[in-house]
Design a protein around this nucleic acid. Structure first.
Lengths: 164, 164
DNA sequence: TTATGATTGTTGCATACGCAACAGTTTTAT
DNA sequence: ATAAAACTGTTGCGTATGCAACAATCATAA
């Protein structure tokens, strides 16, 4: 992690287009990278990587979740989910249960410790994120949310299905 | 890469807050991931990874750039830049020159092949990105750009300096 | 001037992730 | 009923990245 105030990952001295799509793309990238870097430090306090945090948030508090289900939702390869679950199971956050209806499948569910960490991490993370955005007025945030929701929907439709 | 229409990385059945900051955070994440996945396939046509593409765009067409400079701009570790440059030098896209003013430093500059690829990749990528966003009306795109610019500035200020 | 500290790029090591292959299981087609 | 296809989770392997340590060089202080 190498930060100075100079962060400007896309400023090309030559190609600096005024093309809206490219500007938009760069902005989303920059904002994501900034947030991701910040995330890491907050979640490290709970010994969680961003991926572990995300999958923790996806766990149903009571029912188990299928690994494949998680991989679809996170856009991760199944093997990555397997390893994430290995880690989190070793850390005592989740436990695997074989699915009674499908003997191929596993279901992973939160342990008590997992549910506890989930809540604590969420609380801290949510507070941190709120601070990050606190410097922009509330109506602006709301407007951004609406616009990004439209964009996300549009992208999901436009970028159809691929395969493993 | 494991896509189905089901992409929903943050939909937690239990914790689904209406907190604006969290929604905003999730949206930015989701949009970034969608775009990043799409990126990869476009850039692969030029044998470029997203990182290689980014650093290519950062290269000055004539002058050399310091590796440290690139690492700051990309928020990458210096070692990562070293290896990126190793690859791109091997591919004949850039070449290293020792800095005459500072014998510690290297400057990397585009080769003719690098400049050529840079332009071709940029053109294709820009066109693709434009298509991705084409489903949202232009004024909406402009509005998003303005809001994200504010946000990026705010984040850069708020998330100050760390160190390696 | 010299000694101490900072900076530059590189390398070794660890981690996170995707892809391909696999065996076990279920589903579908014939 | 059975063969073919699809799906599930796992493992091996390759790649991308960060961190820590390092030598060479520069900058600063005494």
């Amino acid at each position: 992690m190498c930060n100075k105030m100079l962060f400007d990952p896309f400023l090309s001295d030559e190609i600096e287009s005024g093309i809206p799509a490219t500007s938009l793309y760069r902005l989303i990238h920059d904002v994501y990278v900034l947030l991701d870097n910040a995330d890491r430090s907050v979640l490290a306090q709970f010994d969680l990587t961003p991926s572990q945090y995300r999958v923790l948030m996806l766990m149903h508090p009571f029912e188990g979740r299928r690994l494949t289900d998680l991989s679809y939702r996170m856009l991760f390869a199944r093997s990555t989910i397997t390893r994430l679950m290995d880690q989190m199971e070793a850390a005592g956050l989740v436990h695997r249960v074989t699915d009674p209806d499908d003997r191929r499948a596993q279901r992973v569910a939160l342990t008590a410790a997992g549910a506890d960490l989930r809540l604590r991490a969420y609380t801290a993370h949510e507070q941190y994120i709120t601070e990050c955005f606190a410097h922009r007025p509330a109506p602006e945030q709301e407007q951004l949310i609406q616009l990004l929701k439209h964009l996300r929907t549009s992208l999901r439709i436009h970028l159809g299905i691929q395969d493993t």
